[in-house]
Simulated scan of single mutants.
Amino acid sequence: MRVISKVTELHQWRAKTRSQNKTVGFVPTMGALHQGHFSLVEAAKSKCDVVAVSIFVNPSQFAPHEDYDNYPRDLESDLKKLEPYYQNVQDDDDFIVFAPSVEEMYPRGITLDIERQIGGFVEIRGLSLQLEGVTRPHFFRGVATVVTKLFCAVQPDLAFFGQKDIQQCFVVRALVEDLIMFPMKVVIVPTQRDPKTGLALSSRNVYLTDDERDNLAPMFYKGLKDAVAAYENKNERSAEKLLALVRNRAEKEGGLNIEYISLIEPDTLEPVVGNVGEKGAILCGAWRIGAARLIDNVLLGIPLMPKD
């Protein structure tokens, strides 16, 4: 498997694929790969001639007090996990991994202190300071910046993101629409879950104990499913009642430390007032359990992918 660490080499690879009229599917990751990531790789392989997977733990989306230094990193293990997807490719350049250094991605240097950062950064106003942005106001500035850098480096035709990070999906879509230098589309792939518990797969699940992973953390998703059942089977549209169903299961029964539970409009990500309308809504939240901070969401009456 070809592993590229330099942007100049990546541009040479992209020039070759373009000369062969091959479409490129791109899967950006921070490593610690799991089945959620592999579902994105599988989707990219099904829709594109060539697949590029990036592995890069992006410092600019972490605050000084967060887990950047402890975030799981094992490039050798990640490459081994990707080997089955590399098998049977016609050309060694049809499946590559881009694993740059921090210096390659931030040539001016980078500090976690946003006030001391220098160089170019990207912000998506209007979608970044609610939900995840309330407690992590720096986060989507870092995400938008690194995604812009990666898009410029890889120049994909399609980029694949997971539904679990639903706000990130909206931010990236807005980035692609607003920065018109990107002639590409964003594909959102459904959240991958533990088949027994329903817990959304996440790199941060490694922080959970067996009991937390199997019995406590899944209570949030059970609350989300309660709300989905009420919405679909009982025609429940009251935002207050739908939110209460999630909170009752996750906070009261599960004892989870809820950071937020929100029912939001699909176009603005602002809270639904009163009842869910014809546009549907996104029900989402974040909670802490042990050393882990986890997020999840479900869609109420809206498609995962908008119509072209």
Results as ranks from 00 to 15, higher is better:
Phe140Arg: 05
Gln167Thr: 04
Val172Cys: 06
Gln163Ala: 12
Gly142Val: 02
Leu127Ala: 01
Gln168Gly: 09
Asp165Glu: 00
Cys169Ser: 12
Phe151Asp: 09
Gln130His: 11
Phe151Gln: 10
Gln130Arg: 06
Gln168Met: 00
Phe139Ser: 09
Ser128Pro: 09
Leu127Val: 08
Ile166Thr: 05
Ala159Pro: 01
Leu150Ser: 08
Arg141Gly: 02
Arg136Cys: 04
Gly120Asn: 09
Arg125Ala: 15
Ala153Lys: 09
Gln168Ala: 09
Glu115Val: 06
Thr145Pro: 06
Leu131His: 11
Ile166Ser: 01
Val146Gly: 07
Thr148Cys: 12
Gln117Lys: 07
Gln155Lys: 15
Arg136Phe: 03
Val146Met: 01
Leu131Gln: 05
Lys149Thr: 00
Thr135Leu: 14
Val146Trp: 08
Val134Leu: 09
Gly119His: 03
Glu123Ala: 15
Thr148Ala: 13
Pro156Gly: 14
Leu150Lys: 10
Gln167Glu: 01
Val172Ser: 03
Leu150Tyr: 00
Glu123Ile: 12
Gln168Ile: 10
Gly126His: 06
Leu129Ile: 07
Ser128Val: 10
Lys164Gln: 04
Ile166Val: 00
Val122Lys: 05
Val154His: 10
Val122Ser: 02
Val122Tyr: 02
Cys169Arg: 01
Glu115Gln: 13
Phe151Tyr: 09
Phe161Ile: 01
Phe161Asn: 00
Phe160Gln: 01
Pro137Trp: 11
Phe139Gln: 11
Leu158Tyr: 10
Glu115Met: 13
Arg116Phe: 00
Ala144Asn: 05
Ala159Gly: 13
Val134Met: 06
Val147Thr: 04
Glu132Met: 13
Gln117Gly: 04
Glu123Leu: 12
Gly133Cys: 02
Arg136Lys: 13
Val143Glu: 09
Ile118Cys: 01
Val146Ser: 05
Phe151Ile: 13
Arg125Lys: 15
Thr135Ser: 14
Pro137Met: 08
Gln155Asp: 15
Val171Ser: 00
Val122Leu: 05
Gly142Leu: 04
Glu115Asn: 12
Pro156Tyr: 12
Val172Ile: 15
Gln167Ile: 00
Gln167Arg: 07
Pro156Ser: 14
Val146Asp: 06
Ile124Asn: 08
Ala159Tyr: 03
Ala159Thr: 10
Phe140Glu: 09
Arg125Val: 15
Phe140Tyr: 13
Arg136Ile: 11
Ala153Thr: 07
Gln167Pro: 03
Asp165Gln: 03
Arg141Gln: 11
Gly120Pro: 08
